[in-house]
Design a protein around this nucleic acid. Sequence first.
RNA 1: GCUGGUGUAGCUCAGUUGGCAGAGCAAAUCUUUCGUAAAGAUUAGGUCGUGAGUUCGAUCCUCACCACCAGCUCCA
Length: 599
Amino acid sequence: MSNQNNKNIDVPQIEKMRHSAAHVLAQAVLSLYPEAKLGIGPAIEDGFYYDFEFPTQVSDDVLQKIEKEMKKIIKRDLSLKQTFKDRKGVVERYKALGQEYKLDLLNNIEGDEISFYVTGDDEFIDMCRGPHVSSTKEIGAIKLLRIAGAYWKGDEKNKMLTRIYGTAFESKKDLDEYLERIEEAKKRDHRKIGKELGLFVFSETVGKGLPLWTPKGAAIRRELERFIVDLEIARGYQHVSTPEIARLQLYEKSGHYPYYKDSMYAPIEDEDEKFMLRPMTCPHHFELYLSEPRSYRDLPMRIAELAKLFRYEQSGELSGLIRVRSFCLSDAHIVCANAEQAKSEAAGVIDLIQEITEVFGLKMGENYRFKLSLGDRKDEKKFYKNDNAWDEAEEALREVLKNKECEYYEEEGDAAFYGPKIDIQMRNVLGKEETAFTIQYDFVMPERFDLNYVDQDGELKKAIVIHRSAIGCLERIIAFLIEYYAGAFPTWLSPIQVRVIPISEKHLEYAQEIKQELWDKQVRVELDDRNERLQYKIRDAEVNKIPYTLVVGDKEIETSTVSVRVRGKKDQGLHKKDTFLKHLLKEIKEKDISPSLGA
RNA sequence: GCUGGUGUAGCUCAGUUGGCAGAGCAAAUCUUUCGUAAAGAUUAGGUCGUGAGUUCGAUCCUCACCACCAGCUCCA
């Protein structure tokens, strides 16, 4: 069932099927567990779910049983028809049945005539606006996927219900293809590839959510660090360095503390002082800003730092490199003189983000999308109260997105407590979306920190701050990039860029020479001098996604050449050492997306 | 943190209805010196996530804890 007011919108057949499958799921559950209580059951992106309160604890193994029951119902070709019932009768009926969640939902539905859908000859009835398919046999191929807990109405203060996820497709073939796609996607999972390529590890002894980077993984980080810092310098950012720890008072002053308390590590106490591992950089940068009087001539002041941050995330939220407890954010705070400047700076950040995504080969709409995260005027606990400031700030960011011709969607209640933000959302390999980069408009911190400047007219004026990250935190962007490239990084990011393979022992000396020449040019090169056959070493280089493999033997020594093999391609033939090196260095410098020897 | 699941060699996974723990890959050594995706042999590698309990005996059963996975909540 769904409370979405979408009765006049054309709903695609597949969505109707899935929504109807949710009804069938509820019917199947009730026939097996008559005492189960029903929550809601909508169609979702790749399927559907229904929330239940079961009379007893249930685990995975019920899925098969319920699925069998569902298939029986689908086979029986039962009709799904809309009907309207009088509110009073509905309330009484649900009270009698003890369907407390349905009663709760009823409170949010207006009118006396309540829409229901009846399955078959009154076999199952659910409060619902529809639309649905006309008969259960139209539902197609279904599969129940998993069982999980979900708080009633998405609020962790409410009871946790049991959510059953499933999916439905027009045909068994489509369903199988979907399941196959999921399996394929799992092969690109950054945790899997990270392990296979030896990029990072976790240690139970070090602690959860605290990644350890191997030399290979650290090479990727280093390249990204250099990349972003150079870009920022070119755009007038000033890089600073501030401590990863600060007195508790700092976060009380910034106002972060009450909002962030739960996700901060416990204080480190020293006599009567409390120090906190920092979960954000902002207040440090603000204190730096305050270290001397500022003039309008100093603004916009772009204070940047590769900042190591610590957030004590709830254990269940940790996920590979995408959610960790210690991470490095490419952070910056742009102190702006006024709203005009803030807008132009926000626009500048969008330019920077687009420059970066282009280098990675990511496309707007396909690989990432913009979200305008708004505040919620009613939620004074979560969002600093100042309706005018919110309105202005939200409109400012909206204008920036429009001017930059960014497609975006808006989400109420996703803002920071100090202002709205533009989030750049990316999906992981299994479709789960996370914020990769962010641009935040802050009208609160300037007030709290007295971030002022002397204007042209000699007056002391209040600044506006843009918080931003154009490449996000290194852990997360690397996770996305691993999945996006499936481990086959562009040469500039590859932990090992070139591997040299001597055909036999007598070619070892020449291979070493080649390696040294590349090494001297800062190329990340390895020599495979293991006692193995050429084919084995070629395979190993391919499996390790190394962009260039140089094979050297008699032929190459005679002609001062190397045989170049490009990742994923066959032998590209003999190339003069210098020609290859020149090409390689150019490719690295220009950050070409994939290795190639050109036409 | 909550709901459900999983945990066996460095990796991928078998297996034991409670009775000496298994394979492939990777590693090491030897043979081989090889022309573009896996040569052959040998060796080593394990408190079966941790700790209690039940039992003559626990990797297997029970409980607690830890870590990981999916989802919820939260979020860069």
